[in-house]
Simulated assay, not measured.
Amino acid sequence: MRRTLTNIAAGLLAAASAVSAGPAVARGATEPASKAAAVRNVVLVHGAFADGSGWRGVYNDLTERGYRVTVVQNPLTSLADDVAATRRALDRQDGPAILVGHSWGGTVITEAGEHHLVAGLVYVAALSPDAGETTAQQYDGYTNPPEFVIETAADGFGYIKPDGFKAGFAGDANNADAAFLRDSQVPIRMSAFGEKLTTAAWRSRPSWAVIATDDKAFDQRMLDAMAKRIGARVTKVKASHAVFLTQHEIVADVIDAAARGAFATTPSR
């Protein structure tokens, strides 16, 4: 079955009340890491339809700068499951960390980011709902580019339509990289977009945002509005939704800036 993301979001909104009736996502400690410690840890959280391998360029760049980098592998089966995977990674850190999310990963870090070791958040072409909101609600009032089309299987998991993958997800990637991303897609259970968040870490942690100006997964106005609402320090770059892969140097620079500035910055909403 083929549906645009707009239609999918509308359908998920109708189901949100049923989803939110399920068990709440477990919350960790909410106090931020000690300001006496330097931030040398980075935790990277991928989004839907991709896995952690796309972070390789960012990983290489940051490790060369002396950071300890952990890449989360989300199961993409529910918000609660992805938050749990991220919290497991945070529990293994040896000090304060910058938590980074791409796309759907932004929703995940928003919920998981009140972990006591999180010093700051970086949203890379990412969603940032508030507590009590769903991911699907973020699309209200916006028009999604026609290039980004999701096919939803009978079991409720969604994939990006293969013949439109490069145009919709990775327009500035070379053909080989785009093909690898397309053929290694990790489907997401579409009902996850209808799950309500219980907390919004951007209300208590400083935030940074990377906005790709050629992103075909989101309306640009939506990206701007989300970044403004959370008080993020914004970096705009000419890139596709796969900015984490195609412009990994710039993404790494923003993460580095966040690590250096997390304890000198307070949320600005």
Rank of each mutant, 00 (worst) to 15 (best):
D130F: 07
R27P: 00
L99C: 11
Q137E: 15
A97C: 12
A136Y: 02
I255Q: 11
R182I: 05
R3C: 07
A209S: 15
H115F: 03
V108L: 10
W208G: 03
P32C: 11
A85N: 10
R260H: 11
S207G: 07
V69Y: 04
A239C: 02
L44D: 03
A227H: 06
W202H: 00
F169V: 15
G141M: 10
T30S: 15
H115W: 03
R182S: 12
T86Y: 08
L90M: 03
P32I: 12
R221S: 14
L181P: 08
Q247S: 14
S78P: 09
D224N: 13
D82F: 00
S20W: 04
A227G: 12
R27G: 08
A85T: 07
T198M: 07
G120S: 06
A264Q: 13
V149M: 13
A242N: 11
H102G: 03
S53Q: 12
F49I: 09
Y139A: 15
G52L: 09
V118M: 08
G171R: 12
A227E: 05
P162E: 12
D215K: 00
D219I: 05
V122D: 05
T110V: 02
A97Q: 04
R40Q: 12
G22K: 12
S128W: 04
G156W: 01
R2A: 10
A239E: 07
R68M: 07
S184E: 13
N74I: 06
A178H: 09
P96V: 08
R65C: 04
N174W: 06
L90K: 03
K228A: 15
T6A: 12
T134M: 09
G66R: 09
Q185D: 02
L245R: 14
Y59F: 12
K35D: 12
A29C: 09
I8P: 02
P23K: 14
I230D: 11
A136T: 03
V122G: 04
T70I: 09
L127H: 00
E133A: 15
L90I: 04
T246I: 06
V149A: 11
P145T: 12
A26R: 15
F218P: 01
G113H: 01
